[in-house]
Design a protein around this nucleic acid. Sequence first.
DNA 1: TGGAATACCAACTAGTTTAGTTGGAAAGGA
DNA 2: TCCTTTCCAACTAAACTAGTTGGTATTCCA
Lengths: 145, 145
Amino acid sequence: MKLSTKGKYGLIAMADLAIAYIKNPNNSYLVLKTIAIKRDISEAYLERIISKLKKANLIITQRGSLGGYSLAKHPKEIKVSEVLYELEGKLDVGGCGDSNDKSCLIKSNCFSQIVCEEINIKIRESIENMTIEDVLKSYLKKSKE
Amino acid sequence: MKLSTKGKYGLIAMADLAIAYIKNPNNSYLVLKTIAIKRDISEAYLERIISKLKKANLIITQRGSLGGYSLAKHPKEIKVSEVLYELEGKLDVGGCGDSNDKSCLIKSNCFSQIVCEEINIKIRESIENMTIEDVLKSYLKKSKE
DNA sequence: TGGAATACCAACTAGTTTAGTTGGAAAGGA
DNA sequence: TCCTTTCCAACTAAACTAGTTGGTATTCCA
């Protein structure tokens, strides 16, 4: 039930990209290595994570020297749920109603399903109403303290 | 991030035990095999799951023939969080503050930590305010429809 | 008192997922 | 042409999941 490193590293990378974006929206390309070293994350692994976010059109890239990664839009236009969905899949506790869940034969009315639905609603509530900008503000505020 | 079968089967077993308990609080022992067959769950696996709930004092048992499992207290006194905690561990998305999380060196102020905390609060909110009786009521209501 | 029924328990296992690593190809600037 | 960067696919060790196997300990009942 834990958030995997994929989701975690993805969020951290988005934060660094968001800081660069706000500083200079027109030219905010960051080199992967910079983020990887700063955050002590395996560069190769982070690259695989960030490429997923590119496919989801949350990030744009430039190749070659002077290349790098940048947010595709303003941090306030990127929901945390979008980032996590791409990296973790649907962020919920699942449930018997899932089409790919063959483990439960009860389907239509399962006790655990009722519990799952309740939890899933709460999770969705929180991450769909949270943008990268929102989290960044808390983050920067905390950093100052 | 999905609820594993452990948590799911555990909740389902608790539901069956709760139904028996409400019917006759004094003698509500259910044989494991009955639940396993009814819910189409491996008996041996379910036994391992249910034994964890016994250790957590949510269930009492009687050995020998005429033996079985019963809730240790009224369903309204058992929180969903207690059941899931025993089977899934702390039900949250984790976070860098976790003492057993060595993957994040940032610790004190991590971007992803802020997101995790927000989600964790919501999850806790839902399962700590939900008793087995509450869920059972929804379950039985749905069954009638 | 012996057997059937039940709970209890630990060791094993196949398959999946996680968290990466390795090794290179393609693109672009100097 | 060389260096820097993104891009991409195949591989891997370790952990976790979802069980299975094979037994032991209790208790009831005929």
